[in-house]
Amino acid sequence: MSSIETLYITFFTTGFFVGFGHCIGMCGPIVVSFSLNLRAKGVMAPNLLYHAGRITTYAVLGGIMGASGAFTRITAGIGGLQKGVMIFAGLMIILMGLGMSGWVPLGRIFGNYYNSEGVIYRGFRKLSGIESTASYLPLGMLLGLLPCGPVYTALVAAARAGMEIQNSFKAVLVGMGLMAVFGIGTVPALLMVARLTGMGWLRSRGMIYKIGSVLMIAVGIYFVVKGIRF
């Protein structure tokens, strides 16, 4: 087995174990927020689209790292954008929590069933002009930029792998491939969280739903504060 093949396996297993060991805690709240906003039987497709978007962003970043080998320069360049994405994610989770609670007439965003009278829903539809489920793909691409320790670590390794390859085009492909398999590795843990959250019996309990709304708002505030301080 070549060293590159070994790297692919390493990146996948890293993603898999980091998924259960880190992503559930750090990115799980986002997946939970999405899933609570979806119909019980429609959780998987939007989540898969979200992850596809996230993996696409990882792959693009991996390609850039592989080609340039300049981790610090590139991450410094996108630092402001990442800060903005983190604040955006926090605000989105807060709005989803408020919308889900029913305490304010916001309607649901990023769901596959909506209160068509909702202010947020109408605004989002106008803004995006795309069907709700499909919106998870660009959303995943955007949130793939969220600052994340294990993603940074994988990017460092992708940059290092790229530096050892003389052919620039091959370095791009290797960087993309490594980050893509890393992202794929993180999917099972987050899908499991989505599946658990999406269970009908859980969602049918009003009290759990209300508690979920409050937790979402708290998590959203946490994201915003962390984003401002990042």
């Binding site: 390493t10 890293t14 174990f17 980091v18 060991g21 880190h22 320790g149 294990p150 670590t153 460092v156």
Partner: peptide, 10 residues
Amino acid sequence: GMPGMKMGPN
């Protein structure tokens, strides 16, 4: 790495 938090191999 970080104590108590998995960050991936570095």
